[in-house]
Amino acid sequence: MQEVLEKLAVFLSWTMTLVLCLCLSIFLIYLLIKGLPSFGAELIFGKAEPLKVLLGQARVFDGIFPAMVGTFFLVLLSAVLALPVGVCSGIYLAEYASPVMKKLFGSLFDILAGIPSIVIGLFGFSLSIFLHNHFSDRFGPCLLISALSLAVLVIPYIVRSTQMSLEELPSDIRRTALALGATRLQNIAYVLIPNALSGISSGLFLAIGRCAEDTAVILLTGVVATAGVPSSLLSQYEALPFYIYYISSQYSNPAELSNGYGACLVLLGICSVLFMFAYGLKKHLSYRTLYRV
């Protein structure tokens, strides 16, 4: 009886693994078959001349160039906002906080990491209404609000990766400089942070990947279907994930749909490279950053 049960467990495990692999393969092969034909300069620049577009002399109307630029600025801005706050919080938790504080902040960041991105989008949206009503009409959903919200979304990743990579440093690294007369701050700045750099950057790559792929936050905070290349922090913008979402419901001809598949491939490429990079730097730390194991 027990032997039958064991055999059954083995059989089911293999079947389920096979099913999962099949699902993933069908998904990827379908995407490649549909997306590769449209892959090329025309997907990005449409009918405009690539060189002119890059120099800012021509606008792209039927390519994904504005969406790519929008995503790039969005990611850059969110990283700039989230990185200093996240790293400083991580340093505090790893090096200064008392056990009670550590526990308190640890639970708060866990909660923040678990909040659905649409709720954070809603937060950004409410913030923009508030600013609009109380400060200036010029405020509305825009690039800056989106980047701020995305920064809130990914701060827990950066905090956690900073904290964990500092905490796992061995005590001989931790104490040598102190024994030689370095202050606590010098020890952190010249010894601990450089040694924890690969862990911190793996957290940063995960954070950037999340910013690039998230659609729910930007949906509520200022992304639009046609805006061209964003001109200021307070302007609306286009982004790759939103472009894909928009095409899926609003495409009017096969060419647009095929561009949608092309955009999927581009976004998949960007995100998988970022995530694999993060895992390559520090595999186990990245798991824990993403899923707090």
Partner: peptide
């Protein structure tokens, strides 16, 4: 490696393929 790769697949692409497939 496959599972790690899967963590990086954007949600919107799953949705896109879901709609048409």
């Amino acid at each position: 490696t496959m599972v790690r790769f899967m963590t990086g697949i954007p949600t919107v692409i799953y949705g896109f393929v879901g709609i048409f497939l």
